[in-house]
Computed example of a mutant assay.
Amino acid sequence: MNSRRDFLQKVSLGLGVTALSSLPATANTIPEPFVRPEKQLRVALMGLGGYAGIVAEAMQNCKMATLVGLVSGTPSKIDTWKQKYNIPEKNTYNYENVGDIKNNPDIDMVYITTPNSLHHKHVLQVAAAGKHVLCEKPVADNARQTREMIAACEKAGVKFYIGYRMHFEPHTRELIRMREAGELGKIMHVNNYMGFKSGDPNQWRLKKALAGGGAMMDVGVYALNGARYATGEEPIWVTAQESKTDPVKFKEVDETITFQLGFPSGVIANCGTTYAFNNCERLYVIGDKGFVELSPAFGYGPIKGRTHLGPMNQPVVKHQTLQMDGIADIILNNKPDPNVTGQEGLKDMIVVDAVYESIRKGGQKIFINKA
């Protein structure tokens, strides 16, 4: 597998379903006939790489979100995407003139899917242009940058969301529902991990200047975020260890990291992430009354799960379709947010910073400062 995209692009069957964010976390998804209402969230994609292509295809089945604009530094991509998705020339921009988007009333939000270390710069640009922002995870290189991004969006009066698609995925939401309803009892332990074998040694994800970090930044945030929604708590300490089997390929970024999160209730989550091997994707939460296991747990699908009651039967869906419709519903209809704002991204980045600090200090326990 040559990249995270290759690993994750075991895309689900993509059934059209209603936006999950319009439902409380305690509800299941019910498929509905496709109907596109007049009120739409008009979205421009910034960064036309592989993941943007997945999002664009998924948006063809959205009810409330529609692709209307493009931002790219590659003119040939703009030309190809304009034709494929019927995007007017006036809604296309490059990285130098993206500020001009402020004068375009036909675009409501920009979805940033550029390399990780560009997120900070691009979010500030879009916020200054007065457009709502959706940014892929990891939100930034560190918590300091994330706070600056949140402040910029607040100052501009625009919404700021992070691409936590799992918060809209039916199996994940059922796990959260069961935990909140007390069906698992007192949470006792969490074990989860996310990783894959990285291929091309020249890809941007292995260059610190573009990626910000390695496996931990790229896919370790799935394990981290999963531990947080599996427990419903925020970690108060972390210990972490790093290992490398290929110090040449992974000279600039981390290859494999294991980390442990301690929560106020006493629960410990054992987590891991890697760029070194495949078949590394699981979320297992154990309570004193039951359990939930998702495996695969974080990829594009199909997500599969079982509980102490038997196999889970949630619908197989295209995550990005639900995510985009869900965020559109939040903005257009003032619906509750299922923990996908910039603040959610900040909570993860605070812990990511602590993970790297623990590694620098030889695996020392780091107490998390949320200030």
Rank of each mutant, 00 (worst) to 15 (best):
D6F: 13
S21E: 08
L23M: 10
P24R: 03
A25M: 07
N28R: 09
I30D: 02
V35F: 07
L45R: 04
L48E: 09
Y51L: 01
I54P: 01
A58G: 01
A58T: 00
K63L: 05
M64R: 05
L67V: 03
G73Y: 06
K77H: 09
M109L: 15
Y111H: 15
T113H: 01
N116C: 13
A129I: 06
V133M: 05
C135Q: 14
D141H: 12
E148H: 07
I150G: 13
E154L: 09
T172M: 11
E174T: 10
E174A: 15
I187P: 03
R205E: 15
G213A: 13
L224F: 09
A230I: 04
G232C: 01
V238G: 09
T239E: 10
A240Y: 00
Q241R: 04
V248F: 13
K251I: 03
S265R: 02
V267C: 02
Y275V: 06
I286C: 08
D288L: 05
F291V: 01
G299W: 06
G301R: 06
V316N: 00
H319P: 01
T321P: 01
L322N: 09
P336T: 15
D337G: 05
G342A: 11
K347C: 14
D348E: 14
V351L: 10
V351R: 08
V352H: 04
I368Q: 11
A371Q: 15
